[in-house]
Design a protein around this nucleic acid. Structure first.
Lengths: 212, 212
DNA sequence: CCAAATTATGACTGTTAGTCATTTTTTATT
DNA sequence: AATAAAAAATGACTAACAGTCATAATTTGG
């Protein structure tokens, strides 16, 4: 009786089709200016049907965010090179994150969007997703632990704390660069300078005594 | 001919009254859940009148953001102690920023709100405001310059860049703590630990060799 | 071929930002 | 004090959009 399974698959497929349509509209009209009607039209479905597959607009947004995190996760894990130092690996991961943000604008926008949303307002599953293997967090914690045992990373700070600090600092800077571009242009500061500077601070801090 | 001036003052006063009313409603209902009708009712004015003084809801929000930045600015400048090291001053400023965020929740929410908005969508004056003496930015740039000449701060990085990096990193972490509290609770990480950790990273980075 | 279950529809509701013709109040002039 | 002109205030109205639900179309299993 594979009918139930097939139906299950078809339902999954339709959900995916809607998310695909949403991505296309977002790409055309931007994340914030897209209405549910737009998405329904693009998916060649009625609005009611969209609401059959997603409880709310936010949940549709969240589906994109999930895809984004999964892609980012793969990319970050993909550059890991166990022969290299942990700190070198971290920097490489930071760099592919930047590349990811440039290449998959919509995905990055989705991540930014949920970065400034309270967990309380979103599906409770978000907390779970953030910590699952679909997210880079768990992998990064392991990496930091490895760095500690190799004597590369300070061991007087909780690994989870380190990862969340690094993550939120990078997100903070990317958000600033993304939303306040004009400010940097005004001072002839390029995105590259900002990001090089960020990694420099993250690695070495601002103290003169630590200047290379 | 003081009539025009008096009218000017009255207009200013009314604008202020509306912002005062808005603050009260925000405190009751939260920043995001407040409608313009709510604000008008609280100010005992019609909605149309509110729109006479503010072009849009966003501009009303922005007025709160301005007040918030002015208050923060005063507080940050207030703790400056020229006898102390620049890095010590920076840390003290970071700490009063945290206290500010706790004490003036609405103001902090307003700052967070505009932190994740594109400059392009807001009044063009925002860029100006961000750099004026009403904002802590210009003061911090001077402080970093002083740190450089005293040999405390690395001089191989543009001072504006340093300030914007520090600012956006701190905002990133505060945003994360604010919106993702549940995550920290789950790992028994307190806000204090996060912020101590942040300052530690900002000062020293994550390298073992720099561990105190 | 039919009835039950599933899936899809789009007209409808509710909410809220923003507008504008009209009214009320204030100012300047006689 | 009476009146015309200017300024300020009003609230009913529009437009846009998220979300709902009674009804219709389609699929399934007998």
């Amino acid at each position: 009786m594979g009918i139930i399974e097939r139906k299950e698959r078809e339902k999954e497929q339709r959900r995916n089709d809607i998310v695909d349509a949403a991505e296309r509209v977002f790409l055309r009209k931007g994340f914030e200016n897209t209405t549910v009607d737009d998405v329904a039209a693009e998916a060649e479905l009625s609005k009611g049907t969209v609401y059959l597959y997603f409880k709310s607009k936010d949940e549709l947004h969240y589906a994109i965010n999930l895809r984004a995190m999964q892609k980012l996760n793969k990319i970050i894990r993909g550059v890991y090179d166990e022969k290299k130092d942990v700190v070198v690996n971290l920097e490489a991961m930071g760099n592919v994150f930047i590349k990811f943000a440039e290449e998959f604008r919509i995905y990055f926008e989705a991540i930014l969007h949920f970065n400034s949303k309270s967990l309380a307002n979103i599906e409770p599953c978000m907390t779970h997703d953030l910590l699952s293997d679909e997210s880079p967090i768990s992998f990064l914690v392991e990496l930091i632990d490895k760095g500690k045992s190799k004597g590369e990373i300070r061991s007087d700070m909780n690994s989870i704390l380190i990862v969340e600090l690094l993550w939120s600092q990078i997100m903070g800077v990317l958000q600033f660069v993304f939303y306040k571009q004009e400010l940097f242009k005004m001072f002839n500061i390029t995105s590259e300078q900002v990001l090089t500077g960020l990694f420099e601070i993250l690695k070495n801090g601002v103290r003169k005594s630590l200047e290379k």
